[in-house]
Simulated assay, not measured.
Amino acid sequence: MTLTRLIFIVLVLYGGIHWWHQRPVTHGPGVTASDEPIQSRADSDSAITKHGYNIVPLQDFSIDARVLSATHYTFGREADLSPVDLALGWGRMSDESVLKNISISQSGRFYFWQVQEFPIPRSEIETHSANMHMIPADSEVEKTLLSIKQGQVVHISGYLVEAKASDGWHWRSSLTRDDTGAGACEVVYVKSVYVTQG
């Protein structure tokens, strides 16, 4: 066996193993995350320091949701704090029979969806799904966030926050689920995360 052929086989095996571990999780029809996100006044307003940034809690936040898409980031200022964005869905936006009719993608810290025909009202898609920038509280949380894949149902709790730098840069979370476009994403300081299904 030539070296070139051996390298090719190794690369194919590696690609197959990587795909197997990252393949989307399927559940079949039915809502997998029925509850609305929970949000309340933050139990602390003391800034958290991370990588030279001050992170100010705005609201306590927890959510059980299906992962519609997950994208990792290593470049850009936001990546200093947030290595992954999760596009999350709840209610009927966690139902596979609905999601199969919606094309979902992420790019440039945004979440995009397209339909040929609406399986549920547009307003429901917009208010029951969101792109969320995840700021891990520690290395274990970061490891879990980076391992999450499409289709899993996750529980996340922490704060909606505003991150600030000494040069004036800031990154502020949306505090509502009914906004869209630039500024509508949640910036979540994640204290706890675990997979509940998948």
Rank of each mutant, 00 (worst) to 15 (best):
191 K>N: 13
81 L>S: 01
81 L>V: 01
1 M>W: 06
14 Y>C: 12
71 T>N: 07
30 G>N: 04
186 E>M: 08
175 L>G: 09
60 D>L: 03
16 G>Q: 13
162 E>P: 07
160 L>D: 02
198 G>T: 12
85 D>Y: 01
48 I>F: 07
80 D>R: 04
102 I>Q: 04
123 S>Q: 11
146 L>K: 09
44 S>M: 07
65 A>L: 04
2 T>M: 02
171 W>E: 00
143 K>I: 01
18 H>D: 13
87 A>H: 04
11 L>H: 07
173 S>Y: 01
25 V>E: 11
178 D>L: 11
55 I>Y: 01
176 T>S: 13
155 H>G: 00
17 I>K: 11
55 I>G: 00
138 D>T: 04
18 H>Q: 07
44 S>T: 14
108 G>P: 03
136 P>S: 02
168 G>F: 01
164 K>F: 04
104 I>F: 04
149 K>E: 07
131 N>D: 05
118 F>E: 06
80 D>E: 14
141 V>L: 05
148 I>E: 06
57 P>F: 01
167 D>C: 07
42 A>K: 03
174 S>E: 07
172 R>H: 06
137 A>T: 09
142 E>F: 07
181 G>T: 08
36 E>R: 13
146 L>Y: 09
170 H>L: 02
193 V>G: 00
142 E>T: 10
10 V>W: 06
108 G>S: 12
110 F>N: 14
5 R>N: 14
9 I>G: 02
115 V>K: 08
71 T>D: 11
113 W>G: 08
140 E>M: 12
55 I>L: 07
132 M>H: 08
20 W>T: 14
193 V>A: 01
15 G>F: 07
50 K>N: 05
174 S>A: 13
172 R>A: 11
40 S>Y: 15
126 E>Q: 15
10 V>D: 10
123 S>W: 09
44 S>H: 08
139 S>Y: 04
124 E>P: 03
68 L>A: 13
25 V>M: 15
161 V>D: 01
38 I>G: 09
94 S>F: 10
109 R>I: 01
61 F>H: 00
6 L>H: 08
40 S>A: 13
130 A>D: 06
126 E>T: 11
163 A>C: 03
60 D>V: 03
86 L>Y: 03
28 G>V: 12
37 P>M: 09
166 S>T: 05
